[in-house]
Simulated assay, not measured.
Amino acid sequence: MKRMFFATVGLAAFALAPQGAKAQDATWGCQVLLCAASQSPSWQGVSYCVPPMTKLINAMKKPGFSWPICHEAKAGKPGREQYEDCPAGTSVGYSESGRDWVKRTPNKCVQVVDRCENRNDFHARYGNADANARANIKLRTLYNDRDNLSKNGCKVQVTMPRPQRSNPYFFDIPNDKGTKERFWFNLRT
């Protein structure tokens, strides 16, 4: 199905081109879109895609960069999401930094667990302080009574780094029925 879609986008990109047009004759924006949508292999494994994507990566480093658009495909500029969703049972946590701690980065996953309910499971997961430090996992005991710290310290807040996407950029490309499909890609050479 992905190959069919790739071919459909390719045909759409060349629909307005003169007879005898070739893929390399497409606008730069359409070349980028076609290459970014390549999934198996990714654009790095398609020899045709390396020059336009390398040109894109170099252009992004220059002041005044403007993303090349493929108007025929109606996809616009790509989006970017640096982080994966947090695992089930956890929620997004934020790091605060910058002046007055104003900048909030959604780079953590947070969960409250009861270490008293299943001590063996809790110990197996979080009992090794060195392993927690290597994985950047932080534990904070939550108490019900702030005046009496020995009272019920079963609840523990577990904070861990949020997984980063290997392909943080995406295009939402409309298919022939107008439904947008998301294609993830990266810009690593």
Rank of each mutant, 00 (worst) to 15 (best):
G89R: 08
R80I: 05
I137A: 03
R140H: 09
C49I: 09
W43E: 10
K151A: 13
A135N: 15
K62M: 12
N175S: 10
Q111S: 11
K61C: 02
N144K: 15
V102C: 03
T27V: 04
Q157L: 08
E96M: 08
K61V: 03
C154W: 03
P51L: 07
P51C: 05
Y48K: 09
V113S: 03
Y143S: 11
T105Y: 03
A13I: 02
G127M: 06
A23M: 11
P63D: 15
A73E: 02
S95E: 09
V46A: 09
Y94C: 07
A37E: 03
N167D: 14
V113D: 08
C109I: 10
P51N: 08
Y143C: 06
D121C: 05
V156A: 03
Q31T: 04
A135H: 10
Q39N: 11
Q111F: 01
N152C: 06
G93P: 00
N144C: 05
S150I: 10
Y48Q: 14
A133W: 06
V46Q: 13
G29Y: 03
T90F: 11
V113P: 00
K74P: 00
F65T: 02
A17I: 01
P78G: 05
D147N: 15
D130E: 15
C154L: 05
P51M: 04
T105S: 12
S42Q: 15
S95W: 04
C30F: 00
Q111L: 08
K180D: 09
W184C: 11
K55V: 03
A13E: 11
A131V: 10
S66Q: 14
